[in-house]
Design a binder for these strands. Sequence first.
RNA 1: GCCCCGAUAGCCCAAUCGGCAGCAGGCGAUGGUCUCAAACACCAUACAGUGUGGGUUCGAAUCCCACUCGGGGCACCA
Length: 964
Amino acid sequence: MSETTPASGAADTATAPFRYSAALAAEIESRWQDIWEKEGTFHAPNPAGDLADPAAADVAAKPHSFIMDMFPYPSGAGLHVGHPLGYIATDVFARYQRMNGYNVLHTLGYDSFGLPAEQYAVQTGTHPRVSTEANIANMRHQLRRLGLGHDPRRSIATIDPEYYRWTQWIFLQIFNSWYDEQAHRARPISELVAAFADGTREVPGGRDWAALSGAEREEVLGDYRLAYAKEVPVNWCPGLGTVLSNEEVTADGRSERGNFPVFKSNLRQWMMRITAYSDRLISDLDLLDWPEAIKLQQRNWIGRSEGARVDFAVGERKITVFTTRPDTLFGATYMVLAPEHDLVDTVVPAAWPEGTPEAWTGGAATPAEAVTAYRAAAAAKSDVERQVEAKVKTGVFTGAHAVNPVSGEPVPVFIADYVLMGYGTGAIMAVPAHDHRDFAFARAFELPMRCVVEPTDGRGEDPAGWDDAFDTYDSVIVNSAHTEGTEDGISLNGLGVVEAKAAVTTWLTARGIGEGTVNYRLRDWLFSRQRYWGEPFPIVYDEDGVMHALPESMLPVEVPQVDDYSPHTYDPFDSTSTPKTPLSRNEDWVNVELDLGDGVKTYCRETNTMPNWAGSCWYELRYIDPSNREQVVDPANEQYWLGPTEQKPGGGADLYVGGAEHAVLHLLYARFWHKVLHDLGHVSSVEPFHKLFNQGMITADVYRDERGFPVPAAEIEERDGQYFWQGEPVKREAGKMGKSLKNAVAPDEIADEYGADTLRLYEMSMGPLDVSRPWDTRAVVGSYRFLQRLWRNIVSETSGELVVTDEEPDEATLRALHKAVDGVRADMAGLRFNTAVAKAIELNNYLVKRGSTPRSVAEQVVLMVAPLAPHIAEELWRRLGHGDSLAHTDYPVADPAYVVDESVTCVVQIKGKVKARLEVAPSISDAELEALALADPAVVAAIGGAEVRKVIARAPKLVNIVTG
RNA sequence: GCCCCGAUAGCCCAAUCGGCAGCAGGCGAUGGUCUCAAACACCAUACAGUGUGGGUUCGAAUCCCACUCGGGGCACCA
């Protein structure tokens, strides 16, 4: 073997020809990967369908474990060592579960529609399918080297027509349903149509269903469907040439991908009525074993707030506001409408009321002019400008006054852009004394304030002298009474905030001018994109423009060939541009002759495509039944793998590992789809993912030259704590690993130098799985040395013969073994692989020191490390004389008798300082221990005749004596 | 501005319920064995008192309060 690597050592072949070298590791690893593949070692049988295994015993009776990684996007750049961290972790856990008798479903598919392939296609002319499939092949190859125990039969890709036919099918399910608020679930739209037709449900507007045209009916149903097309204000991103969902836009009004400006634009787009599920998406979080931080992010994103709707009369009309603080209604001294609010035009009078302050008019001669000018100015502002100017409140008086419903006092009505049209009713009652934003506005426009919540910080009840609003919940209401004692009178004075809210809400409800209500921050999900490389919608339009869903039999609607894949992008700042879809360029595809029941007619296809979240919204279901042509998933298989159990009341995959960056987007969308499918009876589970685990990132040092540009990290020289690149000093900092920072390390490099088992072990031992940690290539050798020592304890480096002995292990060795097994089991179950590795190393080091390894111990050690370093374990297992793969062999079980020590060291403290140590039995009682400690000569000497005030005994480890 | 998470040797990290801070583990450093020499491998040694300041307790890395630094989320959501 002439090929050597630095780690294997040039002379190894001479001095230690059978050492565990990189070359030997490579040979073992590729051999076992072939065996696993050939024997289908990781095939998980289903209870039913074509992945059922007739030879397997009753599968449904076997405990199952469905382990998932977040769907990867196969990048053209290839993997770096940060990518497989989670895949290795799930593989270790999956192998551990398999050795505990579970039927383990673990596979990996590819989320492969999306922007990068399209951009690459535009640059190179390569069809996205070609480049995407090449990337998938490359990633599969890279991952195969790591020895991941995936079931290859279940590895799907979202771009496969056989996959996306079901994505389109699910879209049709959602399109053909509505949300029944009474039943709290989705129902088929046909049931709504039937209710409209037979009169059990009134058609909105009181019309007769039978008399409506097809287009009119479709318009009515559009307000109910869970997927609907509508002209809505959307996030239009000219730089990307597409619209974006709210979740894809950053706080400063830019696209998450590409960082282009985003503009509000009214466009006809596809939406998903995710808001119908707001409450269930919040409450069902309680069923899940997820990190609290992620649950919190989802709750915040949905943003449920309880409050009240209150009507304010303006002449003959009324303005409805939403408030979370109806208790402060007496403090409402003015109102604000969003500039785009419909009622603005109708309330504006012809002239300014007498005595209108100059500052309120914006310098305009009439209210109508002022409103028009302010609206124009507000509309011209980008979100970024709005953000920056958020501190300075702007607005203009409409000339109208409304009546405060509790006090009867007139309050001026303003428009201002600090009130958002998209939240609540687009109108607020302003309570400047108790809201920071209203306070700032009131100060700018010299509006009156009234204190109605008693300040608890000694500032007094006159807001004139305040620096800011007082907004606590923890106080009582004051100055809030009107015509008390009369029939219509009300007083909130002296009530706590919570009681006052209830009291005023009851009062408003009784008079029909308000009611308790709940508002959400969450908006409906914008579901269409103007892209080429995505799932086409299974929707066509007839010559009257009426929408028709394609029947199931016409699926999949395949992505057509076009001359040019590029989206029509614009100057990123051109807010007046409008989207053009790539699919519309192929007229042969757009115009089709179909028979949808009324004979063959000409239709034209929907040319938007679905966002790339679509494919990842339901892939867990397809992993279960990847080749089912009849159903999205066989209920028997879904029930088995995902169905609710006592441990997971909502059902879902047993473990889902991935990055925290998907906290709201993917996880919220996937939960929503799953719930719709549940409501329609297609799945038994309520939630897709029961246990979620966020793995940390692998970071790496970034080196920057004088100009601040990253230089290749691999070429850095270190001298005396300084870093140099090509002789020039450079600065070091921590950063994300990746191509752009020139610090990526490929898993292949590490596997070449040490073997995949070493890489797996190192990644698992770097630290807890959920925290980010820096990559250190130099440290990898530690894991390699461990595997060498493990090998050497079992196989002779000089002869290649087994060196295990046939002796019976002594008690100390058994204790070391069983303690390690006990600890490693607990760590594996808790996904604490770093400490599991440490315990395995500790045991192995013990065996090195011992000088020889009894065969029975060697076997247990091999099984113990098998999930972490499966190739070397399989090889040693075979050399130890076993014919079969150890993948399904029972994991070692600790004997409790050997887990506890025969004696433990008890420390005796005097006032917290250690003064003596005692060897005692683990079962010793507190009293015995106390007596023993007080009798110890060293302790007696240390007390030195001082008074013993107190003795704390914590058997068997500690006694603390407090002297006076 | 608000919310969440974190801080232990030169570095990555351990430390069940508050109970001896490290023979959990690893990297690196130093010395040694092996070698003609080196690399590999092996053996041995040293290095912190837990970000800062207070508090609770017989006892605090662990609980509480304030602050500093780092990471993440939200941000005119009424």
